[in-house]
């Protein structure tokens, strides 16, 4: 179940990142999957962060999540 959800979340990140917007709030991610349990989505996102498929981006006050491929290189 977790693996299926992981695939779903990753695919959604890829699809939503096709436009100019690459960074999303965790709230956006839970909204993409209205039928799924919010905590399950958060856990899957944490796993994807551990696997470095996703990366955090933070302004210092708020945190966004994005595909590692798009993480800006300074």
């Amino acid at each position: 179940m977790s693996d299926d959800l992981k695939v779903k979340v990753t695919e959604l990140f890829r699809e939503k990142s096709k436009g100019d917007k690459k960074m999303f709030y965790i709230r956006d991610v839970t909204k993409w999957l209205p039928g799924e349990d919010r905590h399950a989505i958060q856990n899957v996102v944490k796993e994807l962060l551990d696997e470095e498929v996703l990366k955090y981006w933070s302004s210092g006050s708020s945190t966004y999540i994005m595909l590692a491929d798009f993480f800006p290189k300074e």
């Binding site: 962060l49 551990d50 955090y56 981006w57 933070s58 302004s59 210092g60 945190t63 800006p72 300074e74």
Partner: peptide
Amino acid sequence: KHGGIVGVKGYGSGVIGRY
């Protein structure tokens, strides 16, 4: 310029990126 890098391995907070 603010924002970006957020931490060290396993952490998503505690570091505030500034350039």
